[in-house]
Design a protein around this nucleic acid. Structure first.
Length: 119
DNA sequence: AAGGTGACAGTTT
DNA sequence: TAAACTGCCACCT
């Protein structure tokens, strides 16, 4: 497929937002997993950086479903209200303790796995 | 235009 | 074992 002249619209950030919006309710994923899914596994930091602007995206991006690879809620400080991230996750059925998702692996959602389901 | 930044992740002390 | 160091790269000023 030929490249479109307007492909510039496909920013790295936008791709990140797309993936994050695919995360099912009650599931979480990591920055690294998203970066890998987008083809640049070494750009995990950028994924986090992208989430900084996620609050002004339309439709909203469920940024609370993205944590680091240890299941730690490293980005909770960037939410409007304190503990908002934690509250949102709990509301989706997860349990949090000391900013860490309990039984993290059980709730982990790998974007790559989603790809397999659709091929 | 060039250099600084960071909601990470892997490696080394 | 845990803390510190470093690579990383798209975006921002």
């Amino acid at each position: 497929m030929a490249k479109l002249k307007f492909e510039k619209h496909n920013d790295f950030f936008q791709q990140v937002y797309q993936v994050v919006r695919l995360i099912p309710k009650g599931k979480v994923t990591s920055y690294g997993a998203i970066a890998k899914y987008l083809g640049s596994a070494k750009s995990s930091r950028m994924v986090g950086y992208a989430m900084n602007n996620s609050h002004k995206q339309i439709p909203p991006v469920p940024a609370h479903r993205v944590v680091n690879r240890n299941g730690i809620l490293t980005g909770k400080h960037f939410f409007a209200e304190e503990n908002e991230m934690e509250r949102l996750l709990i509301n989706e059925g997860l349990s949090i303790k000391d900013n860490a998702i309990q039984n993290f692996e059980a709730y982990f959602w790998d974007p790559g796995q989603y790809l397999e389901l659709n091929q």
